[in-house]
Each structure stands twice: as structure tokens, then as C-alpha cells.
């Protein structure tokens, strides 16, 4: 049986309660919306790109603890990284929450994001954890349409 406390770890609950970078970013030069139609979760991601570098990033929106914490941790993670570096982390993160990559045994650049590995035991919640990342991915691709996890 998967342990519920694996999913709702203190760090995640803390990011849920006090999400980092949870605001409108006045200096943003990219704005991307993301939806999870199944849950009604929605997110707006703001990016300030300096050439290829994510100079600043923030988000707003509503969703469950997993989606909020994941978005919060993502913003902290990618700030200052290049788009290419962020894409690598996106790919690793995605594979981790889908259970395709085990951060305990495989090399990765996920750092503290591994705390969200527990999500892989809860297939119904994978989309919650990855919504913000899909949104970032779309923003970096310069996509204008809102992205959806469906």
C-alpha cells in the first residue's frame, strides 16, 4: 500500500501553504496559462526571459496541494537557468512522476524536486504535479494557446 505521508510530506505541505513566487510578475515578457480540465486546476505562469535565461519567474492560480507545491518548487528551481537546462529538468521530472525514472538509482538534475517522487504511487495525481511543468514547457516554446494536461 502506498503511504499517504509519502505524498503529503512536510515540505510539500509547506509549499502549498506558503507558495514561493506566487504573484503577478510585473517584469514578465511571457505569460502562459495552463489547465487541468479534469480537476479544474488552473495556473498562470509569468516569465521574464533575458535572452535564453529565465531571469525571473512567478505563478498564480488555484489547485490542489500537489499542483501548487510543484509549481512553487519549480519556480524556485528554474530561476536563473537557461531554457535548455529547464527542459532537461522538465524531462527528468516528468519521467520521475510517471515512475519511468528512479531518482534514487539514476543520475538526474532534480535536486529537491525528488521530494515529489511519491506522486508516482498515485497515478491520478501525476497531472497535478506536472501541470506547472507543461505550462513552463509551452511558455519556453513561445506557444500562445493555453496548455491543457488532457
Amino acid at each position: 500500500m502506498s503511504d499517504i505521508n509519502e505524498l503529503y510530506q512536510q515540505v510539500i505541505l509547506d509549499h502549498n501553504k506558503k507558495p514561493r513566487n506566487f504573484k503577478v510578475l510585473d517584469t514578465a515578457n511571457r505569460r502562459q496559462e495552463g489547465y487541468n480540465p479534469l480537476c479544474g486546476d488552473q495556473l498562470v505562469l509569468y516569465l521574464e526571459m533575458d535572452g535564453d535565461v529565465i531571469k525571473d519567474v512567478s505563478f498564480q492560480g488555484q489547485g490542489c496541494a500537489i499542483s501548487k507545491a510543484s509549481a512553487s518548487m519549480m519556480t524556485a528551481m528554474v530561476k536563473g537557468k537557461t531554457a535548455a537546462e529547464a527542459e532537461v529538468i522538465f524531462d527528468e521530472f516528468h519521467r520521475m512522476v510517471k515512475g519511468e525514472m528512479d531518482p534514487a538509482t539514476e543520475p538526474h538534475h532534480l535536486g529537491r524536486l525528488t521530494i515529489l517522487a511519491g506522486v508516482r504511487e498515485f497515478p491520478a495525481r501525476v497531472k497535478c504535479a506536472s501541470l506547472s511543468w507543461h505550462t513552463l514547457h509551452a511558455a519556453l516554446a513561445g506557444q500562445d494557446e493555453p496548455v491543457s494536461t488532457e
Binding site: M1, I4, Q62, C64
Partner: peptide, 29 residues
């Protein structure tokens, strides 16, 4: 302030099936 999905997942681990979401009635939400 607990999101219904988190309620749904925690109850599910107890074997309790409830629905969490907008119930196909978004205008009601």
C-alpha cells in the same frame, strides 16, 4: 483551504470512494 482533490486522494487511501471536482457543473462551482 484543503483542495477537494487532496481530500479525495487521502480518503481513497482509506478505501473510501468520493468524487472530488466540479461534478460536471462548473456554473454551480
Amino acid at each position: 483551504t484543503v483542495h477537494p482533490h487532496d481530500i479525495g486522494t487521502i480518503l481513497d487511501q482509506e478505501g473510501i470512494a468520493v468524487r472530488a471536482g466540479h461534478h460536471c457543473a462548473q456554473p454551480v462551482m
